[in-house]
């Protein structure tokens, strides 16, 4: 199927300490265990992403705060996400995400 790319700027709560309120998982190929990217696993009720309302489970994370995750191993991508959340996120009070979402075949 085709995918659409979406950019979200998700405001963090004033303290920003609760983060996005999203858990993400790494997916890989069953055949050769090649890393296939980081995907949204759950959106925590009442969290920043839930309040914002646009992120969906199984969205693939493509970039965070302007830093691409493509071409990285799942582990490196998660490290990039973690680092970006702690420094960049709190400074700007929001997190910019680019995600890829499968478009249902019409």
């Amino acid at each position: 199927g085709t995918r659409e790319f979406l950019t979200f700027e998700i405001p963090l709560s004033d303290s920003g300490s609760a983060g996005l309120g999203v858990s993400v998982k790494g997916n890989r190929s069953k055949e050769n265990h090649a890393d296939l990217g980081i995907f949204v696993k759950s959106i925590i009720h009442g969290g920043a992403a839930c309040e914002d309302g646009r992120l969906r489970i199984n969205d693939q994370l493509i970039a965070v705060n302007g830093e691409s995750l493509l071409g990285k191993t799942n582990q490196d991508a998660m490290e990039t996400l973690r680092k970006s959340m702690s420094t960049e996120g709190n400074k700007r009070g929001m997190i910019q995400l680019i995600v890829a979402r499968r478009v249902a075949k019409r």
Binding site: G19, K30, H33, L81
Partner: peptide
């Protein structure tokens, strides 16, 4: 689909 989770999950 030939996709599976690699077992790592982090909360952001």
């Amino acid at each position: 689909r030939n996709l599976e989770e690699d077992g790592t999950v982090i909360t952001l």
